[in-house]
């Protein structure tokens, strides 16, 4: 069972996770706009990514303990986790159909964006592999917090404090996994395994952007 403190922490993180959703306006704009050329697509997806980062920062600021960290460490954590958190968030958008019927249009926009398929296929493969875990909203929110509070980010000075904060969320996530997937004791481990896959996106992201710009 979750302790009272863990319950409060989870509730607090969930409120902010739900609140910091991509604004519906952006999702509907995705559809209303007629068939965009690939350069409009570029602008649209770049705007979406920028919005993602702003939403990510709002979510992160509300993670209990984050604001007590050194300011430059806060920057290091966000810079180091932004791409991973964005792909995790996109996996949630796709798997929980948060854009309702717009999901397939978004997929089509991405496939026609001019990004090479060497990058796109692994992306949708990742969404599918995350989808198979049938994660509940609490798991997405907590896993995002775990990704952000990763102590081995570049330029991070105070690793111990970040490690302690991350552990808090890992303990809650482990209990949530046991509660929501009682028949699958390996579920928590498989969830953490996805973080390794997520890191590969971070590594390839800069090349992906470069090749996209060239196209």
């Amino acid at each position: 069972e979750l302790t009272q403190e863990q319950m409060n922490l989870l509730q607090y993180v969930m409120d902010s996770h739900v609140k910091n959703r991509l604004p519906q306006s952006l999702a509907t704009r995705l559809i209303l706009q007629e068939d965009m050329g690939s350069d409009d697509n570029f602008v649209f997806l770049t705007e979406m990514a920028t919005r993602h980062v702003q939403i990510l920062v709002e979510f992160t600021k509300k993670l209990p303990g984050f604001q007590t960290l050194d300011h430059e460490d806060q920057i290091a954590l966000l810079k180091g986790s932004a791409v991973e958190a964005m792909f995790l968030r996109s996996a949630e958008l796709f798997n929980r159909k948060l854009l309702e019927r717009h999901t397939d249009v978004l997929e089509e926009r991405i496939r026609k964006s001019g990004i090479s398929h060497d990058y796109i296929n692994p992306m949708f493969h990742f969404y599918k592999s995350v989808g198979e875990l049938k994660m509940v909203e609490e798991e997405y929110a907590l896993l995002t917090a775990v990704v952000i509070l990763t102590p081995d980010r570049q330029y991070l000075k105070d690793k111990e404090s970040v490690e302690k904060l991350q552990e808090t969320f890992l303990h809650i996530l482990e209990k949530i996994c046991k509660r929501c997937h009682p028949d699958n004791p390996q579920h928590f481990a498989r969830l953490l395994g996805r973080l390794t896959e997520l890191r590969t996106f971070s590594h390839h992201h800069a090349d992906m952007l470069m090749s996209w710009r060239v196209n």
Binding site: V43, E58, I75, A82
Partner: peptide, 21 residues
């Protein structure tokens, strides 16, 4: 537009400002 800023600039702005619209 914000999209022309680098990732770090967007993060710094968002940390200072408040995009909760």
């Amino acid at each position: 537009p914000a999209s022309n800023l680098g990732l770090e600039d967007i993060i710094r702005k968002a940390l200072m400002g408040n995009f909760d619209d």
